[in-house]
Amino acid sequence: MNLAQEGETRQEGLPVARALPLSNVSNALECIDVSKRYGQRWALARLSFVLPAGASLLLTGHNGSGKTTLLRLLATLLRPTTGQLVLFGQNGVAQRATLRPRIALLGHTSFLYEDLTARENCVLLARLLGRPASEVDGLLDRAGLAQRADQTVRTFSAGMKKRLAIAGLLLKQPSLALLDEPFAALDPAGIAEMEQHIRSLSRAGTTVVLATHQVEHGQTLCTERLHLSAGRATQA
């Protein structure tokens, strides 16, 4: 990953965006001077970086450093207050409708309906994607949920919800996978499986952005790293 710092570095070694490469389709992500404001607070401030397609980025930082905000921006669920976001050569705000089928987000909220069963949740997603509902069984099996596929999500533990959410992500076969704390709430076996999933995504050419506190898991999975501190990119 290039911290887009052609030009000078001002104070304290902070990267400053000066000249940025022109939009390039071989870049999966181009974040150009992006800031996001919530009320009085800047969740992200002047963030610039590019990530080539197929690369994997480890996003680290303390609680409240802006990791989740960045992932939601990259997922096109939020729009930047200022700055520009280019995903696969397309504008992340104007062309979000065409981008969304290629993006999957494993959020720290699961996007699941608590009162639907695991299968119903997945079938809903499959229908909206226009995929045959028959694909769902295999995925639930892969996620280790075959036995409880017909129980409502409300009865699931946090770890099982995470497994179900990853099943949804795999169903979508995204070009860009955004993972927010994927290892949280998982048991050791679950963590190992999640690592497997991430590796296979990377092998399949998916661009991965992984936000986690568990740096030791992330470092082996990712080629690039970005550390956020109070919404700004800093050297880790």
Partner: peptide
């Protein structure tokens, strides 16, 4: 409220619906 419980509405937006 049902849509907001696990941000399911965001899931639908991203699906995309």
């Amino acid at each position: 409220r049902v849509e907001q419980e696990n941000a399911a509405l965001d899931g639908l937006r991203l699906a995309p619906a």
